[in-house]
């Protein structure tokens, strides 16, 4: 057992580190609530909650947030489907040529977007897919396949073998086994995949910056434009930042355990 002293030292270290993380965010939040353009912190009574409404209106966030939401929801749905199919194939059924194919899929986790963005843009331009939502959704999906397959394969392999064997005895085909048994049993892993995939898609900036503009701007890119225009209105800029961060933060508050364990386990993903 550890002594009281050791315990106290632990808390001091942890609290100090925590304060370093929280301080910048704290100043940002107080800026967002300040009636002063320079974002000077004020007392609770003077908080100007209108800043959020003003920023929302001025930055045109209704449109941008809707675009981000559509992209994120489509990507998450597609991602789960692809990961289920791929993970089930590589983890349970086995795949012809998997000694070659699976390493190639895993290699994708190491391939950075920068390595493919140039041809991707010019090819998609020829196909008329730049500045379209289906275009960017497709790219997110393709980039997400390696992690998704890796993740669901591990989840399916952790399921008891006997379940598959007895289901097969009952004459269940591979598709029915996936739908009615494997997928429901791997539900915790699927939830984690949904959360991580939503976060990665929502937080994306580079891909949206390259592929989408004007009407199709995502929330992160719209925020970048907004902060460029409102350099002197710190309070509105901060309010806008919190609006864009909010969806993922809400999920993080609600499902913190899944986020943290998922990110630690999935740390090998880029």
């Amino acid at each position: 057992m550890i002594s009281k002293m050791e315990r106290a030292v632990n808390y001091v270290v942890l609290t100090l580190m925590a304060l370093i993380v929280l301080f910048p965010i704290g100043t940002f939040v107080t800026s967002a609530l300040s009636p002063d353009r320079s974002g000077k912190p004020v007392g609770i009574a003077d908080f100007q909650w209108d800043n959020f409404a003003t920023a929302w209106r001025d930055a045109g966030f209704s449109r941008a947030m809707a675009v981000s939401m559509i992209i994120a929801v489509c990507v998450v749905a597609g991602q789960v489907l692809l990961a289920l199919l791929g993970g089930y194939a590589f983890g349970v059924l086995g795949v012809v040529g998997d000694r070659v194919l699976f390493p190639i899929v895993l290699l994708g986790m190491m391939i950075s977007l920068e390595a493919i963005i140039v041809p991707l843009y010019y090819q998609f331009r020829t196909l008329g897919l730049t500045n379209t939502l289906p275009g960017i959704i497709l790219i997110h999906l393709g980039m997400g396949v390696p992690f998704g397959v890796f993740w669901m394969r591990a989840a399916f392999r952790a399921l008891p073998r006997s379940a598959f064997e007895s289901a097969e005895m009952d004459g269940a085909g591979p598709l029915r086994m996936l739908r009615s048994m494997a997928a429901p049993m791997a539900r915790p892993a699927i939830y984690t995949l949904i959360l991580l995939s939503f976060m990665w898609t929502w937080n994306d900036y580079f891909l949206s910056l390259v592929f989408l503009h004007g009407e199709n701007q995502t929330a992160t890119v719209a925020l970048g434009v907004f902060q460029g225009k409102y350099v002197t209105q710190i309070n509105l800029m901060a309010a806008g930042g919190l609006i864009v961060a909010a969806p993922v933060l809400v999920l993080y508050v609600a499902f913190q355990r899944k986020f943290i364990s998922g990110m630690l386990a999935g740390a090998i993903k880029e």
């Binding site: 993380v21 976060m199 929502w202 900036y205 864009v244 961060a245 993080y252 986020f259």
Partner: peptide
Amino acid sequence: FLPQVMTTVV
């Protein structure tokens, strides 16, 4: 973990 879930823009 908070900084890990915040978008880089923010």
